[in-house]
Simulated assay, not measured.
Amino acid sequence: MTDREVQILQLGLNSPRSLRASSLRIILQGWRDLDYKAQLLADPKAVSITEDFEIADAAIVTILENDVEHLHLVIPTLH
Rank of each mutant, 00 (worst) to 15 (best):
Q39T: 03
L34K: 10
L40T: 00
L34C: 09
R25D: 06
Y36Q: 01
L9Q: 11
G12W: 02
L11T: 08
Q29H: 06
L28N: 08
Y36T: 01
Q39E: 08
S15G: 05
L19G: 07
G30I: 04
N14W: 03
A21M: 10
Q10W: 05
R25A: 12
G12L: 13
R32D: 10
I27D: 02
K37G: 00
L13Q: 06
I26W: 01
S22T: 13
S15K: 09
P16C: 05
G30H: 02
L11M: 13
R20G: 14
R32F: 08
L34A: 11
S23C: 14
Q7V: 14
Q39V: 01
A21H: 07
W31R: 09
S15T: 06
G12N: 05
S15A: 10
L40V: 04
N14M: 10
S23P: 07
L28H: 04
I27L: 10
W31I: 10
G12K: 06
S15C: 11
L9K: 09
L11E: 10
A21V: 11
I26S: 00
L11V: 08
A21R: 07
S18E: 14
Y36C: 01
R20A: 15
R32M: 12
R25P: 02
S23I: 07
Q10T: 12
K37W: 02
G30D: 04
L40N: 02
S23V: 10
L13D: 05
I27V: 12
L24Q: 03
S18D: 11
I26P: 00
S18Y: 10
I27P: 00
R17W: 15
Q7A: 14
S23M: 14
I8T: 11
D35C: 03
L13Y: 06
Q7K: 15
A38P: 03
P16N: 10
Y36I: 02
I8W: 08
L28F: 03
I8H: 07
R32I: 11
L9I: 14
G12Y: 03
D33T: 03
D33A: 03
A21G: 07
G30E: 05
L24R: 04
Q29K: 13
I26K: 00
Q10P: 02
A38V: 09
Q10C: 08
S23Q: 14
D35P: 00
S18L: 15
Y36P: 01
Y36H: 04
R20H: 13
L13M: 13
R25S: 08
A38R: 15
L11N: 12
R32K: 15
L34D: 15
A21D: 06
P16E: 14
L19W: 11
A21E: 07
S23H: 12
Y36F: 12
I26D: 00
L34H: 08
L9Y: 06
Q39G: 00
L19M: 13
S18F: 12
R32W: 05
R17N: 15
Q39N: 09
L9E: 11
I26M: 13
I27Y: 00
K37T: 01
Q7D: 12
R25L: 13
L24T: 03
R32P: 04
Q7S: 10
R32A: 09
I27T: 06
P16V: 11
R17M: 15
D35M: 06
Y36N: 01
G12S: 07
